[in-house]
Design a protein around this nucleic acid. Structure first.
Lengths: 259, 259
DNA sequence: AGTATTGTCCCACTATTTGGAACAAATTGT
DNA sequence: ACAATTTGTTCCAAATAGTGGGACAATACT
């Protein structure tokens, strides 16, 4: 039909509605959803009712609003364990955290966006879903660039097309051309830096986690502030980061599910 | 049709498939799903294809297996922030953790099962099952019993019907009758104990988080080992736990989303 | 080669979804 | 208090999308 992508059936529509509700980061009325929905009222209504009594949405009687349901949290826990690098990478991240005492991130890429899967914070304890599942831009983060640099050409250009190139700071790379040049450099050195491109005062060094075909399946990063570190001093971490990334690669390869 | 509940349409079936795949905690073949599926081959096939190109499932070409997709993790992050008590409860849990130095859990109930939403680790981490999104049984955990005890009669009996009454240890309550008696006691005192009912050597004290209508919207628990504590000594924490629960109640009431 | 198993595709049949419109309930304005 | 407007829910005939038996292809066993 008219749309660019082949949206598959009722299920696809229902899932789109979930995304839409997730985008509003607050309880939301039926009519608000309707306003940004391509569906007619009755259709959307039934869709939402279905999702609600499936536990994917929660309806609040008092306020007449919808929020995402906790069934999603349950499902996501399984997804996190199954399809993220986090469980495999955990021991290595733990060891790395102990060594360096700085904030670490483990991220993967989903449809051009960075998806944080795990985190080690120098001070705070681990709280999974507050950090895991968080998304970030691909073009202006260390992990994003590290992964993009090691994608197959087709996947890379598809991912690049998804970038907003929103200018977070004066250092943000705001064009595909500029980013591509940067990615080529990263592909040569194997190291990506965030030079306050996402947030002033925040810098980071990141390395990709590669599979045997040298394509990125994720990335790890070490974040610091300009007050405590410089790009130069972050460089000192490159060796240990790469070592950890290699360990994770190895562990991921070795991990063949038993029966 | 023949089934007891009205399962709604294609969307319901698709979501059931997700649950099914989540239940296997490993990559899974098409035929394995088929074996435990009520749907004929062709139907299931299309369902899975739809879910796959929606990013709810990931297909591995090499091994021919499916796992849950990372789109779920992204969605769940929003769900966790929107529909869990965790963001609201966080500061109070932090404070409590600082005070008591023991392992804390924040949990809610989903369809009769306990869903852990947040966790604070003791200084000496007692590694046992648990992290956000993890599920547990309702009948044999402190948080589960605390929530069950403060449910409306209808919701309670529906939740009780969902219990497996699996006997984890010799202390597990294995019948609805026994559990009901326990719940009545809990409703009187406002405090629930796990007397090694889920795991030998692990005990806990839990209190419900109530709304204004005195129904549980969640629970918090403090877990320890029989090596370090006794049920009696856990009792000392009841005051501070209840105080924290009340604070969370208050915060949840006050938190009215701004426009 | 022969047989069994697993995965993909086809297409007539049918059940579900669709969405315009009517209706009900809650909100606002005069 | 009454009408007008906005918001939410239900109905039903037409249209569409889902269904599933079975054919077929691709591997894996004997």
């Amino acid at each position: 039909m008219g749309k660019e992508a082949s949206r598959d059936g009722t299920v696809g529509k229902a899932l789109d509605v979930l995304d839409q509700i997730a985008a509003f980061e607050r309880p939301i009325r039926f009519s608000e959803i309707l306003d940004c929905s391509p569906h007619p009222k009755a259709t959307l209504y039934r869709l939402i009712q279905t999702l609600t009594n499936q536990g994917m949405l929660t309806y609040s009687e008092e306020s007449g609003t919808y929020i995402l349901g906790i069934r999603l949290v349950r499902l996501a826990h399984s997804a996190w364990r199954q399809s993220s690098l986090a469980p495999i990478a955990r021991p290595f991240l733990d060891a790395l955290a102990k060594d360096v005492g700085e904030t670490l991130h483990l991220a993967q890429m989903d449809d051009g966006q960075v998806l944080y899967m795990d985190k080690r914070n120098a001070a705070e304890p681990v709280e999974m879903f507050s950090s895991a599942g968080k998304i970030g831009p691909g073009h202006s983060t260390g992990v994003g660039k590290a992964i993009l640099a090691y994608m197959s050409p087709q996947n890379q250009s598809r991912a690049l097309r998804r970038q907003s190139f929103y200018q977070y700071t004066s250092n943000t790379l705001t064009s595909e051309g500029a980013l591509k040049i940067e990615l080529t450099k990263i592909a040569k050195t194997g190291i990506a830096f965030d030079r306050e491109e996402h947030e002033i005062g925040i810098i980071c060094i990141a390395v990709p986690i590669l599979n045997t075909r040298k394509h990125a399946i994720g990335a790890i990063s070490l974040t610091s502030t300009t007050a405590r570190n410089s790009l130069k001093s972050l460089q000192n971490y490159s060796k240990i980061l790469q070592k950890t990334a290699n360990q994770i690669t190895q562990a991921a390869e070795d991990w063949q599910f038993p029966t």
